[in-house]
Design a protein around this nucleic acid. Structure first.
Lengths: 122, 122
DNA sequence: ATTATTGTACTACTTGATTGATACAATAAT
DNA sequence: ATTATTGTATCAATCAAGTAGTACAATAAT
């Protein structure tokens, strides 16, 4: 794992994003055991509490779960994982649409913007 | 003006958004003079410095400008205003697309999500 | 010239977030 | 039974953001 951290945002949030991406993209497989808090912390050169916080946040989202003294694992509930992804997507979408509406853009404007952006990027 | 503020986000950001919306939606017309910092602050039941901060931020974006001792005015440069709107829109769009990509959604997925959301909402 | 009104600068206080050091608790491994 | 490893709780230190109080500076209005 890369552990490229900057000071633009809280470290624990950056870590959370990094791990979340690994999970969603399948680098971490369902059921897989994560390294211990201390090991992860050492690997990322970060205080164990900071790593702990990132993991706790991840847990709130349901992507990982804990077994008290044996460690943390990626959830095996792939259905839940999918549902979670969709929920996040919907939320992001709503936020986006709200912002666009506030700027006074119509649906056609948005469609046009999207296609233009995609055309430019390849 | 409503001045409905909560404590979920910094007050000055909420104020900034409120005013920005009024400007973009045309409630505040180009060239129009804004009430003084103190008056706005009183109206919003907020410390003058807080209002000042919101207005300074708005100024950074170019939506308002200051004449040292006569007050603040909405910019008359409607072209600039339009350009600004488009820039904000593009930024929002890029952010949105990045998030969607991180979730592993394809372009078709995004198109589908959009149309679905719009269909549902009316 | 004087006064009132404008934006601004400066400083301090408060609060919350972030990070860190350390100790605890539970249990798997031996 | 003992030990090592796991996550967790607690407390403190630090830091930055936000807000507020007050005084200053410039100039339009009189």
């Amino acid at each position: 794992m890369a552990w490229i951290l900057d000071d633009s945002r809280p470290i624990y949030l950056q870590i959370e994003d990094l791990i979340k991406t690994k999970i969603i993209s399948g680098v971490y497989q369902p059921g897989q055991k994560l390294p211990s808090v201390r090991d992860l912390a050492a690997e990322a050169a970060v205080n164990p509490n900071t790593m702990q916080k990132a993991l706790t946040e991840l847990e709130r989202s349901g992507l990982v779960y804990t077994q008290r003294t044996s460690g943390r694992f990626i959830t095996e509930d792939t259905a839940k994982m999918t549902e979670l992804k969709e929920q996040i997507a919907r939320e992001q979408l709503q936020l986006f649409l709200k912002n666009m509406e506030q700027l006074g853009l119509s649906r056609d404007d948005i469609r046009r913007l999207l296609e233009t952006a995609w055309k430019e990027e390849s």
